[in-house]
Design a protein around this nucleic acid. Structure first.
Lengths: 351, 351
DNA sequence: GATTAGCACTCTTGTGGGCTGAGTGCTAAC
DNA sequence: GTTAGCACTCAGCCCACAAGAGTGCTAATC
C-alpha cells in the first residue's frame, strides 16, 4: 500500500498527526485533532480514518485507549511526500552565510566548524566525519629548532593540512645541521604520497643521516599518523548535551546508554554508513537504520564533496520524533552552501 | 569547635557516616551504622553521638525521621583530618606512568591528554586550563606554498607550539617570492615576543612587502591569536558524561542546568579560580566555593608548574559526595607525576 | 556516669483502590 | 459517507494506608 493510494483526506490527517506529535511528543487523539486542525470533519470521521491508518501501518498506538503515534513508515511517508518545505529563517540563513564567508580554508577545521554550527542551528547533536582523501602527498617538511635539545617537526600536506610535533633529542642538534636535514628530507620526500613513502626511501634516508638517524623516527611517525588520518577518518560528535532537551531522553539510563554507544569511533562510523556511496541527503528513520541502537532515533546525513568525490559525511542525530521539515530544510540549505564552498575552495575552475 | 575537640569515638562515627554516604548516597541511620561499622557500641549510643554531631554542625538531616548526611563542614574535616590515605592501585599507577612516559612533548597537548586521563581514572569530569605563559616569542614563521593561490602559514613559538593556517590569495604567488617573504618575516620577527610585535615593525614590514602587503594580514592575525591564547587561557571540560552516573544528577533538569553553566569559558575559569596563587592541591567543598552554582559540588584542583611558576590548573569536578580518598589519592599521584615531568621537560638542569 | 533497651513518634516510600478524563470502537441515525 | 452517541478502556492522579527506617526520649543497667 503506497501513500498515494490513500485518500487526500487520510494523507492530511496523517500529516496533521505527525506534526502534532513532533510538536508535543504526546499521542494525538481524534478529538483534539478535529478541533485543532481545520479539517472540517468531526472527530468520529477522523476516528474512522485513524482506525484505517492504523490498520495499514501508518500509525501506531502505544496502548488501546491512547491516541496515535506515527510509525517509522508514517514518518517515512511524511518525509518523502507529505511534509511542507521549510524555508530557513533569515537568522538561520545569516548564520550559515557568515560561516560560509568566514573562509576557514583548512578542510578539517572547516568541517569541524560546520558540525558545530549545524548542531546549534538544528538543536540536535551532530556527527562529522573528517575528510578522507587519497593521493595526499607530502608538500613540505620543516624542522625548526626550539633549543639545542628540541625541535619542532612540521609536516605540510598537499592539502594544506599541517601536522606537527615537538621532538626532543638526547644529544644537542646544531641548528645548521637541522637545516641540512630539513633540506635532505624535502629533497627526498616532498611530493611523495603519504602512503607511498617506501621502505627503500627510508633505508636510503637512514644511511644519509648517519649518526642523526634518530631524527627520522618522529618524521616517519608523523607521516604514518597523517596517512592514517587520511585513510581512517574519525567521526566527531558534538552538541550531545542537546539531547537532554528531548523528552525521549528524559530517562537518564537511556541517555547514558546512547552516549556510551556513541563513544566508540567505529560505532559512530557505522551510524554514518548509510550515507556512503549515496548521493544527496540520506534520512534513516527508526528501525530503518541497520544499527539496533538507533531503533528510536533518526539520522539525517549527507556527503560533503570536493569536485564530484564525496570525501566525508556530516549528519544530525535525533529522536525519530524529529522536526523533519525544519531540520531537513536547514540541513539542505547548509550542506548545499558547504558543498558550493568546497567546490570553490578546492576545485578552482582554472585548475 | 574544632574537630580534635571531639572524642575519638565521635570522630570515628563521623568518618564512618561520611564513608557510608559516599558509598551509597543514602542518609545513614544509627542502626545500620551500628551493624556495619564495627564500633562495638549499640545503635542508641551512636544515636546520642550523632545527635551531638548534628548539634555541632558536622552532620545534617534531610528531614526529621531520616538518617544523617555530612555537612560541608563534615566533609571538610574528613578531607583534612579524618580520612585514610588512599594508595593508587597498580592499574592506576600503570596508566599514569604510561601517560607520563608517552612523552608528548608539546605542552598544550600534554595537558589536554592529562585532563582526559584524570577524568577516566577518577570517573568524574575534569577541567584543564591551557597553559598561560608570558614572554613567549616567535621562533620561526614559514610560508609553504600549496598551490599558486594557496600557502600554509606556520608559526612556531619559542615554546615549541605550532599555530598554522591555510591562506588563499587572489593573485598567484610565485614560490620564489614566498620564500623571500618568509625570509623577510623571519629576519624581522623571529625572536620577538608575541605580545611585543610593534606597530613600527608592522609598518616597516608593510612597506617592504609593497604590493604583497596582503600576505601580512594572516600573519598578524595568527600572531594575535597565538598571543591571545597565551594571555587568555581556555578551560577545557572533559568527561562530562560521567556525571550521568552520579545519583545527584539523576534529575535531568539539574544535569542540564549544570552543563549549561559549564558551557561558558569564563564560568569555567571562575570554577578554577580558588586554585590560582595557591600551592599544592586545593579542594573546595559545596558552599565553600565562591560560585553559587557549585554549592552542591566539590572541586579538586591543582596548579601545574614549570619550574616554580604555576602556568595552569587541572581539576576534577564532582558532587560534594565525592570519593575523596580515592580521587584525592589519584589526583595527588597524578599531578605529582605531571609536575615532575614538566620540570624535566621544560626546565632541563643544564639550562 | 556512660551505655543500652525499649518505645512512642515522625516521616518517607511503596502500594492499592477509586476516580477522572482522554481516547477508542462501534452502532444507529442522518 | 458522515456524524452523534455511548459503552468501554486505560494511564495518570489523588488519597489513604501500611511498612519501614529512623529519631529522640526515658528508664533501666552496667
Amino acid at each position: 500500500m503506497e501513500i498515494y493510494d490513500l485518500s487526500e483526506r487520510k494523507r492530511r490527517i496523517l500529516a496533521a498527526i505527525i506534526e502534532s506529535y513532533i510538536d508535543t511528543a504526546e499521542p494525538v487523539g481524534s478529538k483534539a485533532l478535529a478541533e485543532a486542525a481545520g479539517l472540517g470533519v468531526s472527530s468520529a470521521t477522523i476516528r474512522n480514518e485513524m482506525a484505517e491508518l492504523k490498520e495499514l501501518g501508518w500509525l501506531e498506538q502505544p496502548h488501546t485507549s491512547a491516541g496515535s503515534v506515527p510509525s517509522s513508515r508514517g514518518y517515512r511517508a511524511y518525509v518523502d511526500y507529505l511534509m511542507q518545505r521549510y524555508h530557513v529563517s533569515e537568522q538561520e540563513s545569516k548564520r550559515t552565510q557568515a560561516f560560509l564567508e568566514s573562509r576557514v580554508a583548512e578542510l578539517e577545521r572547516l568541517i569541524a566548524e560546520a558540525g558545530k554550527l549545524i548542531s546549534e542551528l538544528s538543536g540536535y547533536p551532530s556527527l562529522t566525519m573528517t575528510p578522507k582523501r587519497s593521493g595526499v602527498a607530502i608538500r613540505h617538511i620543516n624542522l625548526v629548532p626550539v633549543d639545542p635539545y628540541q625541535f619542532v617537526l612540521v609536516l605540510v600536506t598537499s592539502e594544506g593540512t599541517v601536522k606537527n610535533n615537538l621532538c626532543r633529542t638526547r644529544q644537542p642538534l646544531p641548528t645548521e645541521l637541522l637545516y641540512e636535514i630539513t633540506e635532505l628530507l624535502n629533497r627526498r620526500l616532498a611530493g611523495v604520497e603519504l602512503s607511498q613513502v617506501s621502505v627503500m626511501e627510508i633505508a636510503q634516508l637512514r644511511r644519509s643521516l648517519g649518526e642523526f638517524e634518530f631524527v627520522l623516527q618522529p618524521v616517519l611517525q608523523i607521516i604514518h599518523e597523517a596517512a592514517m588520518a587520511m585513510e581512517n577518518p574519525e567521526v566527531i560528535l558534538g552538541g550531545e548535551g542537546r539531547l537532554l532537551e528531548q523528552p525521549e531522553f528524559r530517562d537518564i539510563g537511556r541517555m547514558k546508554e546512547f552516549l556510551d554507544f556513541l563513544q566508540d569511533n567505529e560505532a559512530r562510523r557505522q551510524v554514518l554508513s548509510p550515507a556512503e556511496g549515496h548521493e544527496g541527503i540520506t534520512v534513516t528513520i527508526g528501525q530503518e537504520h541497520p544499527l539496533e541502537q538507533l531503533r528510536d532515533s533518526s539520522v539525517i546525513m549527507g556527503n560533503y564533496r570536493i569536485g564530484d568525490r564525496p570525501v566525508g559525511v556530516i549528519a544530525i542525530l535525533g529522536p525519530t520524533r524529529m522536526d523533519y521539515p525544519r531540520v531537513l530544510g536547514q540541513f539542505e540549505y547548509f550542506t548545499n552552501g558547504l558543498n558550493r564552498l568546497l567546490q570553490e575552495l578546492f576545485e578552482p575552475p582554472d585548475q
